[in-house]
């Protein structure tokens, strides 16, 4: 399949996926007890008030009509209005998303910086004690609920040893967040742990695979030293596919951010979502879900495309 055809197909698939997500969020919005009217007007509203509200908001029209109207609003960036905060959802997300991105990018970055050398070390020392120890630790880190890890980090590094604050940086702007780097340490550590666990495994696997390739043997036979081969060939060939896997990891990063933000009281999109769940603020909930799923679809698409281009052997591996 030509590259152009492949790209077109993948983009269309991604668009279809996002369309399905909008159908799902639309259905959820309408499956709510009492519908949006009850949500906005509250439990005291009379049937007449609800009927009038439904008429004003075009909620008495047929579902397909409403769905296309909803889709039209989404395309114009209108995600509805928060029940509790009385602000446009799009604006709320716009304010909080950058903070969540700071958290996730830092967690992923720190996690990768640790995972890549660890994974290579494991591969080089395959089936030696180091390999076993790191594998076991990866299993433990992977199996630990993020909030429990965060709690333990707070207990040890904030409560027993007063090194870092137990609360993430507060404030509305990114400048305020960066003004308090010590406050970011524990949240980022909690978020990075699983990245280390998962990506050290990827890196271990990729390195092992590359080490068994013919070119390594050829280079060895040609007199290159092991360290030089690792640095010059194996590292480079393993790095790109492993980093590309981050694309598939986007939903996990957001899930982690949800928990970390709640635990450390970090005012990002995760905390916005969590608060909205407590107060049944459905437009905010579904708006966040939509934004996250678009991010996930884009991440997956990017990872697929990158993998295809760096390794011509990958053809439609993931259908």
């Amino acid at each position: 399949m030509s590259t152009f055809l492949y790209l077109t197909r993948r983009v269309l698939q991604a668009a279809a996926v996002i369309l399905i997500v909008t159908v799902a969020t639309f259905c959820l919005l309408h499956a709510l007890p009492g519908g949006p009217a009850r949500g906005i007007l509250g439990p005291q509203a009379t049937a007449q008030q609800i009927a009038q509200f439904n008429h004003e908001q075009s909620l008495d029209q047929s579902l397909p009509v409403q769905y296309f109207a909803y889709l039209g609003r989404l395309l114009h960036g209108d995600l509805g209005t928060s029940y509790t905060l009385n602000e446009p959802v799009a604006q709320l997300i716009q304010e909080r998303l950058p903070k969540t991105l700071v958290l996730t990018v830092l967690s992923a970055g720190v996690g990768l910086l640790l995972a890549i050398p660890l994974g290579m070390w494991q591969a080089v020392r395959r089936n030696k004690p180091v390999d076993y120890v790191i594998t076991t630790l990866s299993f433990v880190a992977y199996s630990t609920p993020v909030y429990f890890l965060g709690l333990m980090l707070v207990l040890v590094f904030s409560h027993i040893l007063p090194w870092f604050p137990a609360q993430a940086p507060q404030g509305d702007t990114l400048a305020q967040v960066f003004a308090d780097p010590a406050g970011l340490v524990l949240p980022v550590a909690a978020g990075a742990a699983s990245v280390v666990a998962v990506f050290s495994r990827y890196m271990r696997g990729a390195t092992l695979e590359n080490l068994s390739e013919d070119y390594v043997r050829t280079a060895r036979a040609g007199g290159s030293r092991r360290g030089a081969i690792l640095r010059r060939h194996v590292f480079r060939n393993s790095l790109t596919p492993v980093v590309a896997m981050l694309g598939y990891y986007v939903p996990v990063l957001f899930g982690g951010a949800l928990v970390v933000e709640q635990l450390f009281n970090y005012p990002g999109m995760g905390l916005l979502f969590w608060t909205a769940a407590q107060s049944s603020d459905y437009p905010v909930l579904l708006g966040c879900v939509l934004v996250i799923s678009v991010a996930t679809v884009v991440g997956t698409l990017a990872a697929d495309v990158v993998q295809r281009f760096i390794d011509p052997r990958v053809k439609e591996g993931r259908a």
Partner: peptide
Amino acid sequence: RVVDAGIAIPALFILLVISAI
């Protein structure tokens, strides 16, 4: 594609939406 869409919404978020209902 339905599966892809499901994977695009992290389970934790869906579960919290349900918990609100």
